[in-house]
């Protein structure tokens, strides 16, 4: 029997008021694989991330963790499972310093008080592994550069050794050097056995990094591709809607991978 995927979405629907943003979404993320999530603006990519991370729980459908249906009703649930998220807007508190942001909601305590020394030590340790230019750990994150803030957001997601990492456009605001740093990091994480869901508009990144690509269009699945064999044109035409995949073929997507 094949190992079940680390994380699987089965028929997930999400509506905001009367608008159905996601309809019958299927998605599987395996350990040690990078899945690219592609789609045009408004296709529902960020909503899907919010569903998986518990910020905006699904209305219908099930989420399976290692083959077992699990409820993800709030961010806490996702975190406890081992799902970490780097949001598109990074979700940092600009007034807190780097250490404060990294440990927000899971501070290390000593005699009931915050253990700043230990938190700072772990922060430094983690950041030194991720980047060459470790920022000043004690300035408010609002005064860091966007690249540094991205690094902080990624470091925070890795703090509790997650098993699935959701990256919502992690390189959109970065320069060349920093983009490469992030992509190298994602590569390392895959090698360590994490499942990664990577949202990106950059086909170059996707081609270089992803194992598989899932395309969303207007809130529905619109094709799954093996990035190594599918051509860039095939994927792009699926994103733009030049090729509409018939929904019932989704059920048998497993064989196509």
């Amino acid at each position: 029997m094949p190992t079940p995927p680390l994380l699987a979405l089965r028929g997930v629907c999400k509506r905001y008021g009367v608008v159905e943003v996601l309809t019958d979404i299927e998605l599987e993320i395996y350990a040690g694989q990078v899945v690219a999530l592609l789609g045009d603006n408004g296709a529902g990519k960020s909503t899907l991330v919010n569903v998986i991370s518990g910020v905006a729980p699904a209305d219908k459908g099930t989420i399976e963790w290692e083959g077992r249906a699990v409820p993800i009703k709030r961010p806490h649930d996702a975190r406890d499972l081992g799902i970490a998220t780097v949001y598109q807007d990074l979700a940092l508190c600009g007034n807190l310093d780097v250490v404060g942001n990294l440990f927000l909601g899971r501070e290390i305590r000593r005699f009931g008080f915050l253990d700043e020394v230990e938190m700072e030590r772990r922060t430094r340790h983690l950041l030194e592994r991720l980047t060459k230019g470790v920022p000043d750990l004690r300035v408010p994150t609002v005064s860091l550069s966007s690249g540094q803030r991205q690094t902080v957001a990624i470091a925070r997601s890795l703090l509790c050794d997650p098993r699935v990492l959701l990256l919502d456009e992690p390189t959109a605001a970065l320069g060349f050097e920093q983009t490469r740093e992030v992509l190298d990091l994602v590569d390392q994480l895959r090698d360590r056995g994490l499942g990664v869901l990577l949202i990106s508009h950059n086909m170059g990144d996707v081609k270089a990094l992803a194992d598989r690509a899932a395309v969303l269009r207007l809130g529905r699945n619109n094709g799954f591709f093996d990035v190594n064999t599918a051509s860039q044109e095939q994927i792009i035409s699926s994103v733009t809607g030049a090729t509409e995949n018939v929904p019932h073929r989704m059920a048998s997507h497993e064989s196509r991978w």
Partner: peptide, 24 residues
């Protein structure tokens, strides 16, 4: 400034949405 509770207050002042996503 030295407790988990106080840190939550500062976090809310920084960004309510970020605090919610950090499961506060």
């Amino acid at each position: 400034r030295r407790t988990h509770y106080g840190r939550q207050i500062y976090a809310l002042g920084g960004s309510v949405e970020a605090a919610r996503r950090a499961s506060l």
